[in-house]
Design a protein around this nucleic acid. Structure first.
Length: 265
DNA sequence: ATGACGGATCTAATCCGA
């Protein structure tokens, strides 16, 4: 059967471990890539996920900030934790997912948010984000030599239809031309196919994140598509379904991001 | 258009997210 891969910025894995289990039970992905786990490796709630049937786990965490983890009900091999920008800030973990006879490399990323001011001279965090994207561009061709999926919170909404107002967000970090152009270079370098947009027409608005700071996130609907599923072309051609789980933003004590699930048959 | 929020941390006020 198909391979189901999900990605979700969970905004604290310890706080929402039960919510993750509910998601796993209801949607049955084979692999779930989490970002912003916000906990050190020795505090990761391994046993909760093992008990839920996801016994193959690779984490790359640190205390309080960032952190990624990949959970799987299929065996995992060749874990890799790559450092970017010379920092040990836990923004990447990769694994081989062993699905019968085939192996699929899954890269799980949490790209820096970039702060408020979209100017690398004025804002160190924005400079870090751009440098991270440059290093990701350089890493892509190596990662994409084999069948691979690249998922995660890339913190950039590339298309006009990936934000609630293209015009009003052009100077807002996550949708500035310098970022969307850098992301396009990363994508071209792999090359990677944007699996979500291969299934959902680019004309259609799609968001995966809504700020906590609105009274009514659904009514105002000021979202952005910051979370992504990319794949190498051979795999992307096998993608049969994509679900961006908008209702998850309305779950009790939600993350500000929703899961995205892609199925490869 | 920042923000009326929310999470983590040396539990109180501060940093961070995007």
């Amino acid at each position: 059967m198909g391979l189901k891969i999900a990605t979700w910025n969970i905004n604290s894995v310890r706080l929402r471990a039960e919510l993750v289990c509910q998601f796993l039970a209801d949607y049955q992905p084979d692999v779930l890539c989490l970002q912003e786990t916000k906990c050190a490796n020795d505090h990761f709630p391994y046993s909760i996920f093992r008990d839920a049937g996801y016994g193959h786990i690779e984490v790359h965490g640190q205390k309080a900030y960032h952190g990624v983890a990949t959970l799987s009900r299929l065996p995992l091999k060749k874990p890799q934790r790559k450092q970017f920008c010379g920092k040990e800030d836990a923004r990447h973990v990769a694994v081989d997912v062993i699905d019968g006879k085939r192996a699929v490399r899954v890269h799980n990323f949490y790209v820096p948010a970039g702060g408020d001011v979209p100017d690398p001279q004025e804002n160190e965090k924005f400079a870090h984000k751009l440098q991270f994207l440059d290093e990701l561009e350089a890493f892509g061709p190596e990662a994409a030599r084999i069948d691979a999926v690249l998922v995660g919170d890339l913190n950039i909404a590339p298309l006009a239809t990936d934000v609630w107002s293209h015009k009003q967000l052009l100077k807002i970090v996550s949708h500035t031309p310098v970022e969307t152009e850098a992301l396009a270079r990363v994508q071209a370098a792999g090359p990677w196919v944007d699996v979500v947009r291969a299934i959902i027409l680019p004309e259609e608005k799609v968001y995966s994140w809504w700020s906590y700071r609105s009274r009514d996130w659904s009514a105002s609907d000021r979202g952005r598509r910051l979370d992504h599923v990319w794949a190498t072309s051979r795999l992307a051609e096998m993608a049969t379904a994509v679900e961006v789980l908008r209702p998850a933003r309305g779950w009790e004590k939600p993350s500000d991001h929703v899961p995205i699930i892609a199925t490869f048959d």
